[in-house]
């Protein structure tokens, strides 16, 4: 069992836990995601054909206009959105999109900081903390003591 805690900047409050999906690229929600399924449809993305639904999504940066915020909202309402988003550099679109959709958002986490073993993640959007683990049970136990407290 391996466990690591990272601290970024909490932007949208909320707690979430789940499998982490990591991209070392930027992601455009407008045109990059199928809004009915939550599947990444941008062939240039390293998450191409992967489903972001119910995942803790890591991206380096978000790109795009206000419409991107509406897409985050739509996938959230359709139940195919991510549980939380972590990134290195947020923009006002991503901030507003997560805010209207109640999706916890943390920025300031560099891609290199995320250890290779990371499979699961717990997020505290208020404090900007995340906990990474290779094992879900361990994370659940630690999270109940730590992240939610």
């Amino acid at each position: 069992m391996v466990l690591l805690q990272l601290k970024g900047r909490g932007i949208v409050e909320g707690v979430a836990m789940g499998e982490i999906l990591i991209s070392k690229n930027t992601l455009s929600f407008l045109g990059g995601i199928d809004k009915n399924t939550g599947i990444v449809i941008d062939p240039k993305s390293d998450l191409y054909k992967k489903k972001i639904s119910e995942k803790i999504l890591y991206i380096t940066e978000s790109v795009g206009s206000t419409v991107g915020a509406y897409i985050i909202y739509t996938i959230g309402r359709k139940g195919v959105g991510p549980r939380a988003i972590i990134c290195y550099k947020a923009d006002s679109m991503l901030v507003a999109g997560c805010a209207i959709s109640n999706i916890p958002l943390i920025d300031g986490i560099r891609y290199e900081k995320i250890p290779i073993f990371s499979k699961y993640c717990a997020v505290n959007g208020k404090e900007g903390r995340l906990l990474l683990a290779d094992n879900l049970n361990e994370l659940v136990q630690t999270e109940s003591l730590d992240i939610k407290s």
Binding site: R9, G10, I11, V12, E13, A90, S92, V95, A96, C98, A99, I100, N102, L105, D107
Partner: peptide, 14 residues
């Protein structure tokens, strides 16, 4: 409520 959420997040962001 949604407007407040947008402001709260943008306040932290800026």
């Amino acid at each position: 409520e949604v407007a407040e959420r947008i402001f709260k997040a943008l306040s932290k962001f800026y």
